[in-house]
Simulated scan of single mutants.
Amino acid sequence: MFEKKPTTIEQQIALLKHRGLQIESDEEAEHYLSHISYYRLGEYWHAMQSDKENHVFKPESKFSDVIALYCFDRELRLLLFDTIEKLEISLRTKLIYHLSHEFDPWWFQNFELFSDSLQLVKTLSGLEEEISRSKDGIIKNHFAKHKDDKRFPPAWKTLEQTSFGTLSKLYGNLRNNVKSKDVIAEEYGAVNHTFLPSWLQSIAQIRNYCAHHSRLWNRNLPGTVKLLPRPPYQWISEVPKQHEFQKLYVHMCLMKYLLNIVAPGNHFTLKLSKLFEKYPSVDPFAVGMKENWMEEPLWNM
């Protein structure tokens, strides 16, 4: 039976000091703990503990380093969220354009085009919920003008209301003989439909971490991605090993690969390198960074 009782901020500070965490200023620590929960910050100081069962900190562990890690992670999420926004808008555009021309504006509710009917039912159920609670004037006007049409609004209206996760599921669930599935993959430098679905699923997952303010630093990411043996565009020279797929670096490489197509001349490399410079106490290897990552052809663009 769980019997722990809540502790005051003063008690939290005393406990951290007792466990060996150096706190330079009680006033500063009290400020941060009053705005960022003890439990949330614990995700960042966990790696600083030599005895994780008894929560004993390693020598020279500092509260200021905990805050630096937290701020780094927050800024990293903002950078990735901004990057993913560009990819999301691009994917939405391509799905709407190519499939509406290949079939019709209601292709996304045509069960003949999808491999997994049950998954499509779930997707359409989510779409219906998003549409029903939408305050968008375009959606409201559509239903007002077309009261007798019981279908969803056409793709260019409906899919503007959807999440990146829904878009990635729609793409991945398309039958492999749907021409647009290969066309979109080719336009993204993924050659064909074999590889792109896992990339999109990975990016959608990371987007969710960003949207819910979850830690990315030192996190092992579930799942894996299929990498092209010979990408048509600039890529990294050192092929990642299987266990490295758990770290963020490989997934950021995929984002950069797609971003170079969607937004040529982007500043992702510069912004990421400046972030590491801003927080020198942060271990870049905790997110899987390679020592000379900036020299890779992919990151030089």
Rank of each mutant, 00 (worst) to 15 (best):
T7L: 10
T8H: 10
T8N: 13
A14E: 11
K17M: 06
R19M: 04
G20M: 05
G20L: 03
Q22K: 13
D26P: 05
H31E: 13
L33C: 09
G42H: 03
E43N: 15
Q49H: 06
E53S: 11
E53A: 12
H55A: 13
E60Y: 07
S61W: 01
F63V: 05
Y70T: 11
D73H: 08
R77W: 08
R77D: 10
F81D: 05
F81W: 13
K86D: 01
L87V: 09
R92E: 03
K94Q: 15
Y97S: 14
S100E: 09
F103Y: 15
P105W: 02
W107H: 06
W107P: 07
F108K: 08
F114Y: 12
S115M: 07
D116M: 02
D116C: 06
L118N: 14
L118W: 00
T123A: 06
T123E: 10
S125Q: 12
G126I: 01
L127K: 01
L127Q: 02
E129P: 00
E130N: 14
E130V: 02
E130S: 12
I131M: 11
R133A: 01
R133Y: 09
K135W: 02
D136N: 15
G137I: 02
F143E: 06
F143V: 07
K145W: 00
H146F: 14
D148H: 08
D149Y: 00
K150E: 01
W156T: 05
T158W: 00
E160K: 13
E160H: 12
Q161M: 09
G165C: 05
S168K: 01
S168I: 03
Y171E: 08
Y171M: 12
N173S: 06
N177M: 02
K179P: 00
S180E: 07
K181G: 03
V183S: 09
I184G: 05
E187W: 00
V191Q: 12
H193E: 14
H193D: 13
F195R: 08
S198L: 04
I206V: 15
R207Y: 01
S214V: 04
N218W: 01
T224V: 04
L228Y: 06
P231C: 05
P232C: 07
P232V: 04
P232F: 00
Q234N: 11
S237M: 02
V239E: 09
V239H: 12
P240I: 02
E244K: 13
E244Q: 15
F245M: 15
F245R: 10
Q246M: 08
K247D: 03
K247I: 01
L248K: 10
V250Y: 07
H251W: 10
M252R: 07
C253M: 06
L254E: 06
M255A: 12
N260A: 07
I261W: 01
H267K: 14
T269K: 15
L270C: 04
K271M: 11
L272A: 14
L272D: 14
K274H: 15
F276S: 08
E277G: 03
D283F: 03
G288M: 05
M289I: 14
K290E: 12
N292G: 05
L298T: 01
W299F: 13
M301S: 11
